[in-house]
Amino acid sequence: MTDRRGRVLVLIALIALFAFFVGLLWGSAPLSWVAVLKALVAPSDDVTGQIVWQLRAPRVAAAFACGGLLALAGALLQVLLRNPLADPYVLGVSGGAAVGALGAMLLGLAGVAINVAALAGAMAAIGIVFVVSYRAADWNVYRLLLTGVMLSAGFGAVISLLLSLAPSAAVKGMLFWLMGDLSQAEGVLAAWIVLILASFVALALAGALNVLSLGHTKAATLGVAVGPLQLVVYFGASLVTATALMVGGAIGFVGLVIPHGIRLLGITDYRYLVPGAVLAGGGFLVVADTLARVLWAPQQLPVGVLTALLGVPVMLVLLSRRL
């Protein structure tokens, strides 16, 4: 059993690496794979080097970090909320960020200001959900989930209001933010730092997360300090989600489905599930974003549309294979 899980993990890592390379290879300017490899091994200042290192590599790196963050947040929230339908956005973090970002756009702000506003919105959502639902003695995950869902519904209404108030020229940019879009990706380095740190924390907690999936009382009898673990997972997953939102907007589907995809491959142990989800989520989003760049070139599609269009058939195949 252990062997098989290790092999699956290595396979996922290889596929993610391959996706990375394809992301560098494909684009509006045709490059041969030899030229891309050369540019990778020996960076130079010619056109190929510039396309690979300055245009495509940051974009691919952003997509990978974003996908990894979303899949990690989804896996964490699914065990925290004891709900297979949980995704990174279920607790209203994306709604808060969207209200912040769209509000900033409506006020005519651009660039970093939008990100700052989105971050403020996300933090507000994280704070409100926590304050309303938290009880020190017994943090009921259903109250937490319902609080998040309610807040999301409220944010959804505000988002609709902002869209209807916005001048039509601004609406397209807003829709791209809402659907998820990596063409304006910023803060890629910060996203990678968060991804690596959060992955290590999640790996260190993986044993306790496995026990937590048995329920709070059972986890307590098996030596898990449930309250502190829940706090770490809630704030960790929220921070991870907020980071992904800063980079790529509200890209859907990755966070919900990638962890389940890994489970359907037979990996349920969080020691394997965490690295598997991070690698698969990152690789998956790189592929989706590359297609978003090249399918309609030179037009760019919002990547959030492609994650769903690609992911739904893959998940349906995996589901029918198992059941």
Partner: peptide
């Protein structure tokens, strides 16, 4: 005991 464990008997 709450349901929600996806693994096999040995893992449990």
């Amino acid at each position: 005991e709450a349901h929600g464990f996806w693994g096999n008997v040995m893992e449990y």
